[in-house]
Amino acid sequence: MTTSAKVIANAFIERSHAESKPLSNMQLQKLVYIANGFCLALLDKPLYYEETYAWTYGPLIKPLYSSLMSYGSNNITSTIPISPYEDRIDLNEEKIINYVWSKYSDMSAYKLSDLTHQAGTPWDITWRNNDYGMIDNNVIADYYKTLINVITQQSN
C-alpha cells in the first residue's frame, strides 16, 4: 500500500517524540526519502505517492516541505494533520521505517544532506542532469538495491 509522505513523516515524528530526539524539517525530509529508497529496493514499490525532487540541500518532497515550512530550521513539535482517508502503514513498511530510524535518526540534518549528496546517489545523478528536477523512482530503487548489497556483504 502506498500512502502520503505526511503519513510516513508522522511515523518518524512520533518516534522522535517518544525518544525525545529533536527532528528538523530537513532531517525529516531525508529520513522519509531514505525509507522510500529501502521500500523501493526491498518491496518493489514506493512508500509514498508524491514525487521527490533534487533540491539544493538534497531530496525534497514538496507537499511535505510545505506542511513543515512554518518550522523553518526549528524542531518539529507536532504531527502533520492528514486526511482520515489516507492509507496506513503496513507491517513491512513499518519494519523499513524502524530500520531507517535505528540507523539514521542520530545524524544531523547536514550529515543526512551530505549522505544524499554523495557521488552516484539518485540526487547527484538528477542534479547533474536537471537541478531541481524530479528524482526517478527507478534510479532510487537501483541505488538502494546496490546499497543493500553492500550492507549485506559488510555484515557477512
Results as ranks from 00 to 15, higher is better:
P63H: 11
I80G: 08
I97K: 03
K21C: 09
E93H: 04
A54D: 08
I61W: 00
P84N: 11
E93V: 07
C39R: 02
L68T: 00
S83Y: 08
L42N: 01
S78T: 11
D106F: 07
R128V: 06
T116M: 09
A54N: 03
L42E: 11
Q118S: 13
Y48N: 08
K111F: 00
N36H: 06
V32W: 05
A35V: 10
K103S: 12
Y33S: 11
M69N: 02
N75C: 01
G37P: 00
E19S: 11
E86Q: 14
I80D: 05
G58V: 01
L115G: 00
Y53Q: 15
A35S: 15
I96C: 02
P122T: 07
E50R: 09
W127C: 12
L68A: 00
D131G: 00
L112D: 07
Y99C: 00
R88I: 04
D90V: 10
G37S: 12
P81N: 10
Y33F: 14
T116S: 11
K21W: 08
Y132M: 13
S83F: 08
A54R: 02
G58Y: 02
D106E: 15
L23M: 10
P59G: 05
N36S: 11
D114F: 10
L64H: 06
E86Y: 13
P46D: 11
G72N: 13
K111E: 15
S83M: 11
S24M: 02
M107G: 01
K62H: 08
S20I: 06
Y99A: 01
W123Y: 08
N75E: 14
Y110N: 12
S113R: 04
I82H: 03
W127Q: 10
K30H: 10
S83R: 07
L112P: 03
E51H: 14
S113I: 10
N98I: 00
M26D: 00
F38N: 03
L31Y: 04
N25L: 08
R88Y: 02
W55E: 07
S20F: 02
L40W: 02
A35R: 04
Y132A: 07
N129S: 12
W101N: 07
H117S: 04
M134R: 12
Q27T: 04
S78A: 13
W127Y: 15
L28C: 09
L40R: 02
T52W: 05
T77C: 05
N98W: 04
Q27C: 01
M69P: 00
L47M: 15
K30T: 10
M134S: 14
Y85D: 07
K21G: 01
E93G: 09
Q118F: 10
T52C: 05
E94S: 10
K21F: 05
T79S: 14
A35T: 03
I80E: 13
W101R: 02
I34N: 01
E94L: 01
S83C: 06
Y110W: 14
Y71P: 03
N36R: 05
V100N: 01
D124I: 06
S108H: 06
Q29D: 06
K103I: 02
L47C: 12
A119M: 06
K62M: 14
W55I: 05
P84A: 12
W55G: 01
